[in-house]
Amino acid sequence: MEVQNPTVENTSTKKAKLNTKRNMMFWGWLFIAPTLIGLLVLNIFPVFQTVYLSFHSVSTFGQSTFIGLNNYIKMFNDTNFWKSLSNTLFYAGIQVPITVVLSTLAAVLLNTKIKGLSVYRTLYFLPMIAAPAAVAMVWRWLFNSQYGLINIIIESLGFNADIQWLSDPNLVLWAVIIVGIWSNIGYNMILLLAGLQEISKDYYEAATVDGASKLRQFFQITLPLLTPQLFFVLVTSIISALQVFDVIFVMFDLTNPSLSSVQSLVYLFFHESYVLNDKGYGSAVIIILVLIIMIITAIQLVGQKKWVNYD
């Protein structure tokens, strides 16, 4: 091979580097272009549009008239809004802790090298893959006050079984909570199980040598080392619980007199925007929900430093 003149080589590498840089930029932008355009059109711009709509009165075809804070004023005077807000917070406040505790219990029990792990895992996850309409439909049948399986079982245990799950205003939200717990245990359990499997066996061996009981091992080793996954599960569960809609929509008809005791903010958003066709008011409702979710998530992100254990 011929020996090249060093100066020539130098400029040509510089040129080549510049070329690669330009080349990289061209391909980089080309590769992200479809997703970037899609996200801007379908997600980023719509955020601003929803904020805009919340200050407007919107006609069926999307023409809007500016009405200032009227939607928000209407909302703060709307008992349905306050009821939906408290229903939503109550639902999340009860459903999430119970689900997280039960899915942690299931994950810990499944992490004990017992037989049948994959069978249990498959069964626990089953609710997650069913269409919510089908899930809500079967629960509606199970909760039926006269012929539903749940009241039949309660009666066979010797209790008074005249429980109006789907019409007693004090119980309707509990019915939705039960379905929510049942639907979400499997998903959270799998996330937590993955976390448990990462914990090194050495910790337990050392603890056993030191004579620590299983219960103590759980609280001193398992739980602290599982906190990153627990945190993730908690944050995502709260976000999705605050958006509860499907089950309420299918289990409760519009004519159900207890609807106001069970409707959530997303239900109110849907009802106002697409049944009553008031998309401006619906947008204001959803803005408030998003703000609530952001605040709760931010508090958790700050609070995690106190209890989440990242190595």
């Binding site: 996200l39 059109v41 980023i44 719509p46 929803t50 999307g62 925007s273 959803i286």
Partner: peptide, 24 residues
């Protein structure tokens, strides 16, 4: 950052604008 932002925002906030887009 845009990708992460989209993942963190509840999807209902996109819904009405997406609906109006599809309608238009």
């Amino acid at each position: 950052m845009i990708v992460l932002t989209q993942m963190m925002i509840p999807a209902q906030i996109f819904l009405t604008p997406q609906y109006l887009l599809v309608q238009n």
